[in-house]
Amino acid sequence: MTTSQLLDSVNAELEKQKSFIQDQIIGKRKIARERRMDRIAQLQEALVLAKATGIVEPKIDEAANQLNMEYMRGTKAIEAEIQLLKNRKNDDSFIDGIRNLQERIASLNAISLGAEKIKPAAIDQLTTIP
């Protein structure tokens, strides 16, 4: 009975840890998707401005970089980035720390604990120095 209880306790803790990490991964993926959508919105505004000013090819100089004048990249580059972001199927490669979390889940999944590995013992007296 002790073996069964200990095994259940350890397995429950492992599942709790895996669930916690999985929730972190889900949260990171959601935030990455929202950031990608934000970036698309920013680029679409820059594209409107680039079209309005007639900038097709990049005209970036130091001032444009410092002032965050994305529209100076030109319509070709902006449209290409928008299309790239829209077509992205998975943000995992761009999410900081997600591979570490996946590695932790893999490590927890690799833990194999069975009843045969647990050897309970009863202590009937305190140890004494010989």
Rank of each mutant, 00 (worst) to 15 (best):
N68C: 09
I40V: 15
A64M: 08
P130W: 03
D91L: 04
E116C: 00
I25R: 06
E34F: 01
Q125M: 13
K59G: 08
A122Q: 13
A121S: 14
L126Q: 13
I129F: 09
F20C: 06
L67F: 08
L47C: 07
L7A: 09
I26G: 08
S9Q: 15
G27H: 06
K16S: 12
M72K: 11
A50H: 03
L84E: 15
L85T: 06
L7P: 02
T127G: 13
I26V: 14
L85V: 05
K59E: 14
I31F: 07
K117I: 07
N90Y: 02
S107W: 05
E45L: 10
K76Y: 10
D61V: 02
R35P: 01
M37I: 14
D96L: 08
E81M: 05
E81D: 13
E116P: 00
E70W: 03
R29Y: 04
N11Y: 05
S93R: 10
N87E: 13
I123H: 10
I40Y: 08
N11P: 06
F94E: 15
Q5K: 15
F94Y: 14
Y71K: 00
A110M: 05
R33Y: 05
R88H: 04
M37N: 15
I123M: 11
A80Y: 07
E81P: 03
Q44E: 15
A110W: 00
A77R: 08
N100I: 10
E45D: 13
R35L: 14
A121C: 10
T75Y: 02
K18F: 05
I21R: 04
S4Y: 11
F20P: 00
I118M: 12
Q66S: 14
L49F: 01
P130T: 09
P130M: 01
A115S: 12
S19C: 04
